[in-house]
Design a protein around this nucleic acid. Structure first.
Lengths: 167, 167
DNA sequence: TATTGTTATACTCTATAACTATA
DNA sequence: TATAGTTATAGAGTATAACAATA
């Protein structure tokens, strides 16, 4: 760990960076959101590394392994990634034999992204460890609090608030 | 931006990507956290652009403008950025005449980062618009819900959960 | 004319390693 | 020996623009 070192031999100042929480940014919801997410991402990265996945590729593979049969455009919209980023992600996953592009019979411009058997097996194994990690990481919250957090984040991620981001 | 179709809060239409919410990632707290944060960051970027600031430089400048008199190391610990990233951020802000490095009389290795008058004026103006934007963006939550969200995120960002990220 | 997927490019962010000067 | 700041570098993430095939 990066060792929040206490500044010993320095009487008067407590643990060095702790007092910065009293500044305005320390009390800003958006800053807390960013910080919590940074920690969560680092955790996900650690958990997914043994599977050769990152958060993005895990999300794509997970959706490809469902029965949703998404097009690349739908993945782009849902994950809020540029279509070109989806191309790159699918290229990697396809190169690793985890997903394949199937032509959409209803629109010859579009590809449907589906997981291979190998992809399905990998993502199911990965998902189990992700769920375990989630449980441990969110254990500082009670069941009620987790539900409230889910509700709040879901509204922020989908609700009217979303339009402000595109202004 | 890439043609973000404004699918603002109209669930009946069944816009193509909407059904992907029923997949497992759509119900993952960590995914929601990432998505909400991405939207919040995009919003902050839009709000801060007229001031020539980004979220990072805004945070640094904001703390430098307080009476906390942080060292670069403290900024690094608090913002969870590598010391080298702090160097780069301070270089930019110092080049723009917004902060300056002052020698720490108690440790000649350390710099104390303080805002100039210009920096203080800029960040106060910026903070007003950030606060307005925050209010609008979090308006989908009630006052109680905002407090609960703050409490939950604060625990996730500082509590025992933090150690999992470095495991 | 608009949309899907694609290629290309540039910039920001993240993560490490090594170096200096102080402690 | 350890810490504060610095330099350098490489890989991941983000944001645009332009293009071919298809609708």
């Amino acid at each position: 760990m990066a060792a929040q070192q206490t500044n010993d031999g320095d009487p008067g100042t407590g643990s060095s960076a702790e007092r910065l929480w009293s500044t305005s940014v320390g009390n800003d919801l958006a800053f807390l959101l960013a910080r919590a997410n940074a920690l969560s991402l680092a955790r996900m990265h650690t958990v997914l590394a043994p599977f050769g996945l990152r958060t993005r590729s895990y999300s794509v593979l997970s959706i490809a392994a469902s029965d949703a049969r998404p097009s690349q455009r739908e993945l782009s919209d849902f994950l809020r990634l540029d279509p070109s980023q989806i191309v790159s992600l699918i290229d990697q996953l396809e190169g690793a034999g985890l997903v394949r592009r199937e032509p959409d019979p209803r629109d010859r411009r579009a590809n449907v992204v589906v997981a291979t058997d190998a992809g399905r097996a990998l993502v199911e194994e990965a998902r189990r460890t992700v769920i375990d990690s989630d449980r441990a990481w969110f254990a500082v919250l009670s069941e009620d609090e987790r539900e409230q957090l889910f509700s709040a984040l879901h509204r922020l991620a989908t609700g009217a608030a979303a339009q402000f981001a595109d202004a």
